[in-house]
């Protein structure tokens, strides 16, 4: 078991960049960018402050023909929120023109500023081919230019820094299709030296509670989980067994793949609560962190049972009713957890 693997790189202006492995691309990249500016902050902390935890079932958005269920907030929002709450000024731009997008990237990295770019993972040939899916929304950091193209640090996918060719970079940044990145690049300009991390944590927690409990649309938050659970139970009758398995596999994929840090970000949030408990010296937060871990374990069980169903196609004794039931348990416990968290966060002093 390894905790953190570290690779060092020297940037264009002679500064040192430290590559750390992370669980999720956006939070990992944000954490690395802020660390580079001298704000030492961990990945779960960014996730908590940026209110990354969420649930949403989006039947009207299709990915390979299947409805999307998400366990996190909209891509890009964690970075924006975390930057705002920590008083970080950021530069964030999309490009209409490919050439201009590439020129701007080159110009900025030449000054020694590391830049995060959003890319389509399919076109990144430094990554094993079998894992390359057509998914626009992967973030990594560009360090400097070299003879092979660009030196990059991909905290979520690789444990080491690597090279990315100019062709790959152009294709990946400007790939067309759903969720187009349009060459999105971002980096922090300056960090407010007297930022208040405690206040940022409280804002993040309160915002998360609001997202999970108070959105008056039954597709989001805890209500969304209940809605989806009820749908899952009805799937075998409504769609037929094979199609129901496909849809279930898709939920599982969004929960465990896409670099969620395990159990649809629930473990990452538990890690955040644990860190926050140390920061505030709060016993209540430590308890909530343990509860979150327990919920994460139920999500894991959900994954185990689902995988059995998908694998054994009808011969297993596991049923869709059981899977839906597990999801309903998660919904109930998460509702209680976020209600408690809201109370605790209101009592905390910045």
């Amino acid at each position: 078991m390894t905790t953190e693997l570290i690779t060092k790189e020297t940037l264009a202006n002679g500064r040192t960049y430290i590559h750390r492995t992370s669980a999720h691309c956006e939070t990992g990249v944000t954490s690395a960018l802020f660390r580079d500016k001298g704000l030492d902050i961990s990945e779960p902390m960014i996730f908590g402050i940026g209110s990354g935890i969420f649930f949403g079932h989006l039947p009207f958005i299709k990915q390979t023909g299947l409805p999307v269920s998400t366990f996190r907030s909209i891509p890009g929002l964690v970075f924006k929120k975390a930057a705002k709450r920590l008083g970080v000024k950021v530069f964030r731009k999309r490009f209409r023109n490919q050439q201009k997008g590439m020129d701007e990237l080159r110009r900025v990295i030449r000054t020694g500023q590391i830049v995060a770019v959003t890319t389509n993972i399919y076109w990144l040939s430094f990554f094993p081919r079998r894992y390359r899916f057509n998914f626009s929304g992967h973030n990594f950091i560009v360090l400097y230019e070299n003879e092979n193209g660009f030196r990059i640090s991909d905290p979520a996918l690789l444990e080491y820094t690597t090279d990315c060719s100019t062709h790959d970079m152009e294709r990946a940044r400007f790939a067309r299709g759903p969720m187009e990145a349009r060459g999105l690049m971002y980096y922090p300009l300056s960090v407010n030296p007297d930022h208040d991390i405690r206040k940022a944590c409280i804002t993040g927690m309160k915002d998360s509670c609001k997202q999970m409990l108070k959105i008056p649309i039954p597709l989001f938050g805890v209500k969304g989980m209940r809605y989806l659970a009820k749908k899952v139970i009805k799937w075998p009758d409504k769609l037929g067994y094979v199609e129901a398995c496909r849809q279930l596999a898709h939920i599982l994929r969004l929960q465990e793949e896409m670099g969620t840090g395990g159990a649809g970000f629930r473990f990452m949030y538990a890690a955040f609560l644990q860190e926050a408990a140390e920061l505030f010296g709060s016993e209540e937060l430590a308890e909530l962190s343990q509860e979150m871990t327990a919920i994460g374990d139920i999500w894991r069980e959900f994954a185990v049972v689902s995988a059995r169903i998908i694998k054994q196609r009808g011969q297993s004794e596991e049923t869709f009713a059981k899977v839906g039931g597990l999801m309903l348990i998660c919904a109930g416990r998460e509702e209680q957890l976020f209600k408690d968290l809201d109370k605790v966060a209101r009592k905390l002093k910045a």
Partner: peptide, 17 residues
């Protein structure tokens, strides 16, 4: 290898790869 958060023996969260 992909990172994921897991509690270690003391219940403290670490990044496991």
């Amino acid at each position: 290898k992909r990172g994921q958060y897991t509690p270690n023996n003391q219940g403290k969260y670490i990044l496991d790869t």
